[in-house]
């Protein structure tokens, strides 16, 4: 079923979206058929693009929207917002703290 689903969330993890979870986010986003967009203030980027997410520079506390458009939109938004709501300490961009 085609649908556009949007969810607003606040970045919780210390280093922001641009840091460690960015790569994970892109990998998960790419599993879905739906087009994924992230919006912050008046800026929107492709959620399947690591470069786009880096350009967004969303730090801890930033309010962003995840918008999915397609058959699996609902599931995509659920899974992706889940990633950003946890304080992910994994090491997805290879950064060892």
């Amino acid at each position: 079923m085609m649908a556009i689903v949007e969810k607003k969330i606040t970045i919780r993890n210390e280093t922001g979206l641009h840091a460690r979870p960015a790569a994970l986010f892109v990998r998960i986003a790419n599993k879905f058929e739906s087009a994924i967009t992230i919006a912050k203030d008046d800026q929107t980027v492709n959620g399947k693009s690591i470069m786009g997410i880096l350009m967004l520079a969303a730090e801890k506390g930033a309010r962003i929207s995840i918008i999915a458009d397609g058959n699996d939109a609902e599931k995509a938004v659920d899974e992706l917002s889940e990633i950003l709501s946890q304080d992910i300490e994994s090491n997805e961009l290879g950064q060892v703290k």
Binding site: S49, I50, M51, G52, N91, L93, G94
Partner: peptide, 19 residues
């Protein structure tokens, strides 16, 4: 593996649809 991950992030840059 944790050091190898740097390069899997490189793959994401390489295959970036927007780029």
């Amino acid at each position: 593996v944790e050091h190898g991950r740097i390069f899997s992030a490189h793959l994401l840059v390489l295959e970036d649809p927007v780029l």
